[in-house]
């Protein structure tokens, strides 16, 4: 069923001189089992948007329906929504607090009112999903490396067994290897757990290769919502928004301008290499 976002707006500091429109009449549908990239620069409204989805921020106008029910309705169970729509914040390792990794991951399930045994079971599953080495389950979360901390924090949300998992800039501040690990992990989780994942990012290169759909936000509006290839055809408009298409898109565009009849739809190095090789005969090499 998923989430239906119907014409929502959100204002910060409403009614004051400092009023800011963070969301401006946004509508979208988020179905089950889809991998979505949500792109926008800082201040585009993307973080506000994802916080409205699990009811952390209440929309100023418009409605959000989860499985057909209005999440601001009187009878709606917000706690259930928060466990079904998991939200991993930016730098999630800053929320770790327990004495050991496994207790920290059990925090979520316990809050759902589950027994210790059940909470533990879920925590173990979640830690396995994020490929946490077993030897670290009993370590203090503060002794882990940067990448491990982040994975522990993701496990903490995963243990709530969300149907929709939103990750806000999960690769921020990581080195190339840490970044590839986390992205690979998320893509793996998507396949294993059959959930919807929304990956919030300002890097097109990060999301391009993984997602089925890209939503681009700017100035509080949802500007594009389409398959990656189609979104990246708007390179010029994206640049005006302070966003860039994947580097490969630019390379292919240049080759095309120089007269090589390649399609500029390639998003990854592999696709680009294949596309160029398909035009082997036109090359001057």
């Amino acid at each position: 069923m998923g989430i239906k976002v119907d014409d929502i707006s959100f204002l910060y500091e409403r009614g004051t001189a400092m009023q800011v429109t963070a969301l401006d009449h946004v509508s979208a549908e988020i179905p089950d089992n889809q991998f979505i990239g949500l792109i926008g620069h800082t201040g585009s409204g993307k973080s506000t948007f994802v916080q409205t989805l699990n009811g952390l921020l209440k929309v100023t106008s418009g409605h959000i329906y989860y499985n057909g029910e209005d999440i601001d309705g009187d009878k709606f169970d917000k706690k259930k929504l928060r466990s079904d729509v998991g939200l991993v914040f930016q730098y999630p390792e800053h929320q770790l607090f327990e004495v050991d990794v496994i207790s920290d991951v059990m925090f979520g399930p316990r809050n759902l009112g589950l027994s210790d045994a059940e909470a533990k079971k879920r925590a173990l599953e979640a830690l396995e999903s994020v490929r946490m080495p077993k030897s670290l389950y009993k370590s203090s979360p503060f002794d882990l490396s940067g990448g491990q901390k982040r994975r522990a924090a993701i496990a903490g949300v995963l243990a709530m067994r969300p149907k929709i998992l939103i990750l806000d800039e999960p690769t921020a501040g990581l080195d190339p290897k840490g970044r590839d690990e986390i992205l690979g992990l998320i893509a793996g989780m998507k396949k294993e757990l059959n959930m919807t994942i929304i990956l919030v990012s300002h890097s097109m290169d990060d999301v391009a290769r993984y997602v089925d759909r890209i939503m681009v936000m700017g100035g509080g509006k949802l500007l594009y919502d389409d398959e990656p290839v189609k979104v990246f055809r708007h390179v010029t408009e994206l640049e005006e928004l302070g966003l860039a298409a994947p580097q490969i898109t630019y390379i292919m565009k240049l080759l095309k301008e120089r007269g090589l009849d390649v399609s500029s739809d390639a998003l990854t190095v592999e696709e680009a290499a294949a596309e160029i090789m398909a035009h082997r005969r036109e090359l001057h090499v």
């Binding site: 466990s83 998991g86 939200l87 914040f89 999630p92 925090f107 979520g108 809050n111 709530m160």
Partner: peptide
């Protein structure tokens, strides 16, 4: 907010 998202009350 992050802890509320993990069900904290």
């Amino acid at each position: 907010k992050a802890q509320i998202a993990r069900g904290a009350d």
